[in-house]
Amino acid sequence: MSENTIKNPENLVYEKTSVMTDRVLHYCPGCGHGTAHRMLAEVIDELGIQGDTIGVAPVGCSVLAYYYFDVDMQEAAHGRAPAVATGIKRVLPEKYVFTYQGDGDLAAIGTAETIHACNRGENILVVFINNGIYGMTGGQMAPTTLEGMKSSTSPRGRDVKTMGNPLKITELLAQLPGTYFVTRQSVHTPANVRKTKKALKKALEYQKLDKGTCFVEVVANCPSGWKMTPVQSNKWMEENMFPYYPLGDIKVPEK
């Protein structure tokens, strides 16, 4: 079979989903945000809920997320996405509501909103991108920065005595009775991307059951903030982030 005949629509196995717009993503080369966006968009596409989904964009690198999802989107003040999503979900309970937040947004400025939304068991999906750094503002130390990890505000590495310990907010939220499904995934290899997609799909399906907050953490790389190439940063993430932030389901619904 010649190459020209392979490239015809009936042989198509993968293309960008139409739930993502054609805009060029503003993220740095190799950033995990793009893949996480696409997985969420694909899940919305597969469940056929494009018209019934409302997203809440955060402040941080993904502040422009509303340009890339072809669904209704609302921008929230820094860290307040779960509070905004609470309001949206309560007014429009039949809609699917998700927030998409980074670690500076969710685990630092928005800790109170995050914990209380999860504790109230608001029926929303929270997607949490954890790259251990404030990417947009220039690589400052975040609550999730690892011990000894260098950032622009911890140039000698994070010292836990003076700067505190890296915050495992996902484990913390799993303790709350309001959360229904809590998991940690990543998007650096094809297998992990597929697992992330499955987790997001489950989370949106659970939202229909009205059982509580679903929380999906995605451990991601930040090549610019970590000062590495994308491939190096993925390797560094495997070697350093995963031992502290182990992948897998943390809280699964009882059968």
Binding site: N11, V13, Y14, K16, L25, R38, H188, P190
Partner: peptide, 10 residues
Amino acid sequence: VCPDAVITVY
């Protein structure tokens, strides 16, 4: 794995 969704596969 493409973060920018630039690849179409047949």
